[in-house]
Amino acid sequence: MSDSAQKPLPFGFQFLAGAIAGVSEILVMYPLDVVKTRAQLSTGANTGIITTMSNMVKNEGAASLYRGILPPIMVEAPKRATKFAANEQYTALYKKMFGFEKVTQSLSVMTGVSAGITEAFLIVPFELVKVRMQDKRNLGKYNGTADTFKKIIASEGALALFNGLEATMWRHAVWNGAYFGLIFTVKDNMPKSKDPNQQRITNFAAGTVGGIVATAFNTPFDVVKTRIQGYDGVGVKKYNWTLPALATVAKEEGMASLYRGFLPKVLRLGPGGGILLVVFETVSGFIRKNILKE
């Protein structure tokens, strides 16, 4: 999130900075996403991060830790770019619409929620393909990303690619609202400095705190999104809509099951949120200084 005193970057540069930030984060943190999805799809006892990774490497090979990475890589650039660019654009829009003179926490939450909903429409087909490829029940069923898209459309219809859209909107609205709201609060309460190293520390701290708290809020929505998207058209469809699915999981498996995969998720999106913000602000600063000559 850019400093409130600065004008938003032109959309193309916002997109570029967000894309670089997103791809940087996913390349570093992706194995934790695979472990998270496995945990969320399971209804049995959790085996833990290290045990899950060890078993995957032993039984499926080291490459299994990156299974399904192509769909999120394909969408990661526009996804993260949309996250930051839409947030910047909604900030300008809502400041004008509601008369905000400066960025406040309530404005940050509003823009974050709006950016999250916008982001959800873009990513849902890629999220669905990623979940199907990460699911250990589907080992050998899909031969790469293109084959996964093709088989889903052939057996379930093209609209199946948007299964879980409503849950994805909940997941991203909650995460982005909490993330951008917390970024504002943490940055506002940390020492102000023009030293670039101190600014990076502040950004990393703000992004990490925002990522951790946002993950705590949105994990239940992520669990039901994964369950909804894991259904491949075979048998009875148990999960359809977000709120009823939350109630079903809580009733049948206990409230704690709504936080399946929380540890790998928070380990990814806590530091991952810090990486996102640091890279985004660093690239944005480079663009302002060296390209736009601000």
Rank of each mutant, 00 (worst) to 15 (best):
Y142V: 09
H172Y: 15
G207F: 02
W241H: 15
K251I: 00
S54E: 14
L246I: 08
N87W: 10
F204G: 02
D195S: 13
T215H: 06
N290L: 10
Q229D: 04
A247G: 11
G261N: 11
A146I: 11
R67H: 08
Y90H: 11
N290V: 07
A154C: 12
P8N: 11
D33S: 12
K150P: 14
N138V: 08
T47C: 04
E101K: 15
N240M: 12
S24D: 02
N176P: 03
G140T: 08
P271L: 07
Q89N: 10
E101Q: 14
L263Y: 13
G235F: 07
I183W: 00
R288D: 09
K251Y: 03
T226A: 03
V131D: 11
T282G: 13
V103G: 06
Y259W: 15
G210Y: 02
N143F: 12
R288I: 08
G99R: 08
S155W: 02
H172P: 01
L65K: 05
D195R: 10
K225R: 13
K187W: 00
L41Y: 00
A167H: 00
M110F: 10
G235P: 04
V234I: 12
I123Q: 15
I287E: 03
P244L: 08
G18H: 06
L32D: 03
I153R: 15
E127V: 11
A160F: 05
P264W: 04
A85W: 03
G211N: 01
T51L: 14
N59D: 14
L41M: 07
P78R: 01
A214N: 06
T168V: 05
K141P: 07
V124Y: 01
